[in-house]
């Protein structure tokens, strides 16, 4: 990692690299090593046993399924939001644009208690849904989805928006002269252009939502087998000082996140090969 290929005339490599490596080691590398060391000490049978108990399996399923649904909804809404922000002029556009970032900036616990309190059967929104449709939001998987939608909004918007901005109007002109309607132009020309960004935004949101804790833990109600998410399983194992189980569950979650991000990376590189011609 330390060799330099060519001697640069710019000074300061040693200093900046040293500081970088030191801080990186303390904050990331050493803790990561200890995770690896600790994991290596887990006995395979114990590991397998922990992660295959019904309660844990169920928590993975709840985390993945709610994250998937929320991210899919966010993909659709994110596309609409990106579209109106790029293509239309309307009053309050700058405000909407700035607002998109709110879930990044608002502390997750604050969002969590607000969403929960609003959606209990006595809350502003929850009451309406319960009285009208007999649908409960808080303390159900639906509540988890609501919290995860909140968390995931910026991901899709912020990855699609710049791509949409860069699409040259000539593509649309060319398609229209060849006889395409607006709808055909959108689905055949524009959509393929933004699809990679949409997938990327979806994957990032999906991975983030699977690991999300703060905003979900209040609204989920943490009912075992029903609304208990995987991060909460880790948390409760930690509270019992059962580090081995906590680590086992965490390793599987890391693997899931890794798979999601890898699939995305592979898809992106396939697409970029196609459009940049390095195939």
């Amino acid at each position: 990692m330390k060799q330099k290929k060519t001697k640069s005339v710019i000074p300061g490599f040693g200093l900046s690299f040293g500081v970088t490596l030191t801080i990186l080691s303390i904050v990331v590398l050493i803790p990561l090593c200890s995770l690896v060391v600790f994991s290596a000490r887990l006995s395979p049978s114990e590991f397998l046993h922990t992660i295959t108990t019904t309660r844990v399996l169920k928590s993975y399923w709840i985390s993945i399924s709610t994250a998937f649904v929320a991210s899919a909804i966010n993909a659709a809404m994110g596309l609409i939001l990106a579209w109106i922000l790029v293509r239309y002029e309307f009053p309050g556009k700058r405000f909407v644009d700035g607002l998109i970032e709110l879930p990044f900036a608002l502390p997750t616990a604050v969002a969590g208690i607000a969403l929960t309190h609003m959606t209990t059967t006595q809350g502003w929104v929850g009451k309406i849904f319960y009285d009208l449709f007999r649908i409960k939001i808080a303390y159900t998987p639906l509540g988890i989805v609501v919290a995860l939608i909140f968390i995931g909004i910026p991901f899709v918007v912020r990855s699609v928006q710049p791509v949409l901005e860069k699409i040259d109007i000539q593509y649309e002109e060319a398609a229209s002269l060849l006889g395409a309607t607006r709808r055909e132009t959108f689905w055949k020309i524009i959509f393929p252009e933004i699809l990679p960004a949409l997938i990327s935004g979806f994957s990032l949101a999906f991975a983030r939502c699977i690991g999300e804790y703060g905003s979900v833990v209040f609204i989920s109600g943490n009912i075992p087998y029903e609304t208990e998410i995987a991060p909460l399983m880790i948390m409760s194992k930690l509270q019992e000082y059962d580090y081995a189980s906590a680590t086992s569950i965490a390793l599987v979650m890391l693997a899931i996140a890794f798979v999601i991000l890898s699939v995305n990376a592979i898809l992106q590189s396939m697409v970029s090969k196609r459009v940049s011609g390095i195939a």
């Binding site: 000539q170 593509y171 002109e173 060319a174 002269l177 055949k188 196609r274």
Partner: peptide, 11 residues
């Protein structure tokens, strides 16, 4: 119409 930068559909 042949566009200056061709506007071939990349995908």
């Amino acid at each position: 119409f042949v566009f200056q930068s061709y506007a071939l559909f990349r995908y």
